[in-house]
């Protein structure tokens, strides 16, 4: 049976991962559109976007802490002006997970956007569509499989994020203690192996379900449009 700790950790993980993915999606779309267009600055932007992928997550957490911690100027300002405190709070965990999984979303979206035949934009233009209408009626639906694939991969990765959340939001049961942090805590407790085992099984099941769901949905969308692209592969 699932105990209270496991239940809390699972629900919190789902909440943190969902907010992380949905919150960063619009930014990922903007950055991927800019990258897919190419031109000046693309290389630098691309490197910056991929930085969280190669940095140790602890470093990402530390960087967040020194910019958004309550003692940092920006963090202090946020707390004073908006009453927003990110450290020791689940929103901080979501932000840390969002930063670490951002590259997954951008990558999948960029591939999907670059795979769209530029001729289709011309065709839409020749049919009188404004730039916004072209995005809404052509670009977005065609990038949807990539968007979905990226979002699901990011979601699964956010579920498993440990280092950045631990460093930035700390390990507070019921507040910032997501599944991996709960596993870590269980392993630190004498006799906690059984609880850790249950949590590990939960983590595996969640990640697997997410990945299968995402790939299935992306595959369905791709078959509908006859596309053979749009996933991370």
């Amino acid at each position: 049976m699932m105990g209270e700790v496991e239940m809390l950790a699972t629900l919190l993980s789902l909440k943190v991962a969902a907010v992380a993915v949905l919150g960063s999606l619009p930014f990922a779309l903007l950055v991927a559109t800019r990258l897919a267009r190419g031109g000046r600055g693309t290389l630098i932007l691309d490197a910056l976007v991929h930085l969280p992928l190669v940095l140790p997550p602890v470093v990402v957490g530390y960087l967040l802490l020194i910019t958004l911690g309550t003692q940092a100027p920006l963090g202090g300002w946020l707390k004073e002006m908006l009453g927003l405190r990110l450290v020791f709070h689940w929103t901080g965990a979501a932000l840390a997970a969002a930063v670490v999984t951002f590259p997954f979303q951008v990558r999948a979206l960029r591939l999907a956007l670059e795979a769209i035949d530029p001729g289709l934009h011309r065709a839409a233009q020749s049919l009188g569509l404004s730039p916004w209408a072209r995005f809404r009626r052509v670009t977005f639906p065609l990038a949807l499989p990539g968007l979905l694939a990226g979002a699901i991969t990011a979601f699964a990765a956010a579920l498993g994020e440990f280092g950045a959340i631990m460093t930035f939001a700390a390990n507070i049961p019921g507040e910032t203690q997501t599944l991996p942090l709960a596993i870590y805590s269980a392993l630190q407790t004498p006799g906690g192996e059984t609880a850790a085992g249950r949590l590990v099984a939960l983590a595996i099941a969640l990640a697997l379900a997410g990945l299968l769901l995402g790939e299935g949905a992306a595959r369905h969308l791709r078959t509908r449009t006859g596309q053979t692209f749009g996933s991370l592969r």
């Binding site: 001729g119 289709l120 839409a124 020749s126 052509v138 639906p141 065609l142 449009t225």
Partner: peptide
């Protein structure tokens, strides 16, 4: 306009 390729919207 009709282009050299049909350029139909695949979705």
């Amino acid at each position: 306009m009709v282009f050299q390729r049909p350029l139909l919207f695949p979705h």
